[in-house]
Computed example of a mutant assay.
Amino acid sequence: MSPSLFTSLDVKSGGGTAVFSFLILLLLKMAFDTFGYKMGMNPWPGVFGWYCNPAYRLFDFLLGYTGFLVLEKTDLKVSSWKISVIQCVTLVFYFAACHLFDKQWVPAPFILLTLVLIFAFTLPGGIFNAIFGNRVLTHLGNISFELYIVHQVNINLMNHTLLKWTGNNHLLVFFMLLVISWLMAEFFSLNPIKRFVTKSIYKSKIFI
Rank of each mutant, 00 (worst) to 15 (best):
F61V: 12
F61H: 10
F61I: 11
F61P: 00
F61W: 15
L62E: 06
L62C: 14
L62Y: 13
L62K: 03
L62F: 15
L62I: 12
L63V: 09
L63K: 01
L63T: 13
L63Q: 08
L63C: 09
G64L: 14
G64N: 07
G64Y: 11
G64A: 11
G64M: 11
G64I: 13
G64R: 07
Y65H: 12
Y65I: 11
Y65F: 15
Y65D: 02
Y65R: 07
Y65L: 10
T66P: 05
T66V: 05
T66I: 06
G67C: 08
G67R: 02
G67P: 08
F68V: 04
L69W: 02
L69Y: 01
L69A: 03
L69H: 06
L69Q: 03
V70Y: 00
V70Q: 00
V70T: 06
V70A: 04
V70N: 07
V70S: 07
V70R: 05
L71N: 04
L71C: 12
L71T: 08
L71A: 14
E72D: 02
E72C: 04
E72G: 03
E72T: 02
E72A: 00
E72F: 00
K73F: 10
K73Q: 14
K73P: 08
T74G: 04
T74M: 09
T74F: 01
T74K: 08
D75F: 06
D75S: 13
D75T: 12
D75G: 01
D75A: 08
D75V: 03
L76N: 06
L76H: 03
L76Y: 08
K77F: 04
K77E: 10
K77M: 09
K77A: 12
K77D: 10
K77S: 10
V78K: 13
V78A: 11
V78D: 03
V78R: 13
S79C: 12
S79K: 15
S79A: 11
S79H: 12
S79Y: 01
S80V: 04
S80T: 08
S80C: 06
S80R: 14
S80K: 15
W81H: 07
W81N: 09
W81K: 07
W81M: 04
W81Y: 10
K82E: 09
K82D: 04
I83F: 03
I83M: 05
S84L: 09
V85G: 05
V85P: 04
V85D: 00
V85N: 00
V85C: 09
V85R: 04
V85F: 08
I86W: 02
I86Y: 03
I86C: 01
I86A: 10
I86V: 14
Q87D: 07
Q87H: 13
Q87F: 08
C88K: 03
C88E: 02
C88S: 14
C88L: 14
C88F: 10
V89L: 13
V89G: 05
T90V: 15
T90I: 11
T90E: 02
L91M: 15
L91T: 15
V92W: 00
V92C: 09
F93C: 15
F93N: 10
F93L: 15
F93P: 00
F93T: 13
